[in-house]
Design a protein around this nucleic acid. Sequence first.
DNA 1: TATTGTTATACTCTATAACTATA
DNA 2: TATAGTTATAGAGTATAACAATA
Lengths: 145, 145
Amino acid sequence: MAGQAQYEELVRQFSAFGAVKREMGRIMPPECPGGSAAVLTLLDRHGDMRMSRLAELLAVDMSVTSRHVAHVAGRGWIERLPDPADKRSRILRLTPSGYAQLGELSRRTTELLTHRLAHWSDEEVGQLARLMGRLRESFAAQPTP
Amino acid sequence: MAGQAQYEELVRQFSAFGAVKREMGRIMPPECPGGSAAVLTLLDRHGDMRMSRLAELLAVDMSVTSRHVAHVAGRGWIERLPDPADKRSRILRLTPSGYAQLGELSRRTTELLTHRLAHWSDEEVGQLARLMGRLRESFAAQPTP
DNA sequence: TATTGTTATACTCTATAACTATA
DNA sequence: TATAGTTATAGAGTATAACAATA
């Protein structure tokens, strides 16, 4: 249970985090903006899925998901297969080209973080990842009413 | 010095953080979007300053800063005073109305975080704020060439 | 009637470039 | 000539609402 001053400090850091996110965005391939990268990463992580499931994992409206998916499919990085169980649905699946794109994304982000976090210990990187994961869970647990 | 797998996990958490930021944004007053809140917060934190200094603290282009400042000034939350040392410059200063708005922002964010982070210890909140602050510093230290 | 997904519209945030006023 | 700030334009991300197809 923390106090108001601590929460305000945390909010300041949340706000300042935008600069980190923007720099990550700048090193991405021009054809693959952040939304596309998120789609590829989640499909890699969780396997084939439907639009609605992807929207849930992205934590954005399905209309937004639809846009991102259309962009990614247009580049040939995923394919949209018919769902035999429900003709309204489509199953999303990474293509070999999509896996190649994921490799490129990984190379770029690893290269940037290797430089920027050169002075961070293994434990610190893990701790930040763990706390941010817990933060996301704490917010996802109680969706806005 | 961390490995590629750890960096990829960290990048996933960076991406997922967007959901937290969006929920924070949803509870803001409609007249005061994120950019405006950042301007008010930084002026409160660092005192009166010029546009260029604010742009540096926001870590965005001055054209973006100019937009946010115009919005905030239009609501009467800050005033733009002439700089006696340089007629091209303007000194930004919070008004009483601006301080009132800051109080409202603080109430809303504290209320949200009190609920969402109810199970977090004081130490964990402090640790997350500290690590995110260090992350920002690690990125700011080497601006993009 | 309800659900899956798409599209149209609108709003926020951002960067680049052109512009002005002053240094 | 260089700098402080503004504005116009363009692009990415998002949400809401209206819509089509299917359950």
